[in-house]
Design a protein around this nucleic acid. Structure first.
Lengths: 128, 128
DNA sequence: CAGGATCCAGGCAGATACTG
DNA sequence: CAGTATCTGCCTGGATCCTG
C-alpha cells in the first residue's frame, strides 16, 4: 500500500483512534452530545429533549461521556437532588467535527434515501 | 445558518438525519470507508487491510454501503471471479466529514485515555 | 429528582463450513 | 475468489420497579 495518510494506518486494530471512534457506536452518544451542545442541562431536561431515551440509557451514556472526559457532572446536594451536565473543553473540541457529520447527513440524507429505495440486491437465495 | 443550528432540532426521533447517522453505529462501516478511501479494492484486498474482519461482516457492511449509495460494486464475470469496490461520488462527499472525525480522534485520544484513567465513578454499589 | 437493580428480548457479530 | 448458510454467544438496550 502506497501513499496513504498516516491516520489510515493507525486505524487498524490496536490503535487508540479506533477505540475512541467506537464510542460513537452506541445509539445515544452522538444524540446526547448534540443535545447538550453549549447548554448546561439537568438529567430530566435531557430526558425531555431526547424523548425516546430511557433513564437507564441516558445515565449510561452520560457515564461514558463523563469517563472519557467529554462531559462534566455537577451535583447540587439539595432536596430534591439536582444534577447538571455540560460539556468540558474536550467535549467542545469534539463538537466541531460532529457538526460536519450532522451537516453532511442533513445535506445528503435525501440522496441516501433515494439510493436505498432504488437498490436491488445482487443475486442471492436469501437476504443476509 | 443562525446561532441555534436548525439541525439540532431535526435530530429528534423520526428525523432522517438520525437514520443516516445510525449507520455509523456498527463496528465496521467507518473502518471500511476509511480503508477504501480513494482506492478501488477487491474483496480480498479489503480483507487483508482490515485484518480482523470476517468475510461475513465485510460482505454485510459492503452491502449496506452499497445500498446507501456510498460504495459501488463492480463484478467482472471472469474465472476466478473478481469484484471491485470503490466509493461513489456520494461516498466521497462523506469522506470529508469523516476525516474531521479521524483527525479529532488522532489529536485527542491521549486526553481521552488520561481522562478514563483518572476517572472514578460516582458512589454506587456496582458498575453498570 | 436522579438514577440503580433486575429481567429479558433482539440484533450484532464471531466461527465454521460450504459453493459457483 | 467472493461470497453464503447456519449456529450461537454476547452485548445493547428496553421495560419495570425501587430508593436516597
Amino acid at each position: 500500500m502506497g501513499k496513504r495518510k498516516p491516520e489510515f494506518e493507525a486505524l487498524n486494530r490496536n490503535c487508540p483512534i479506533r477505540d475512541v471512534l467506537d464510542r460513537l457506536g452506541d445509539r445515544w452518544t452522538v444524540l446526547v452530545l448534540m443535545t447538550l451542545g453549549e447548554q448546561t442541562l439537568r438529567f430530566s431536561a435531557l430526558r425531555r429533549e431526547i424523548e425516546d431515551i430511557s433513564p437507564r440509557m441516558l445515565a449510561q451514556t452520560l457515564r461514558h461521556l463523563e469517563k472519557d472526559g467529554l462531559v462534566s457532572r455537577q451535583v447540587y446536594p439539595t432536596v430534591p437532588p439536582r444534577v447538571e451536565y455540560r460539556m468540558t473543553p474536550l467535549g467542545h473540541s469534539f463538537f466541531d467535527p460532529l457538526q460536519h457529520l450532522i451537516q453532511w447527513a442533513d445535506e445528503h440524507h435525501e440522496q441516501v434515501r433515494q439510493a436505498r429505495e432504488a437498490y436491488v440486491a445482487p443475486e442471492s437465495h436469501e437476504a443476509l
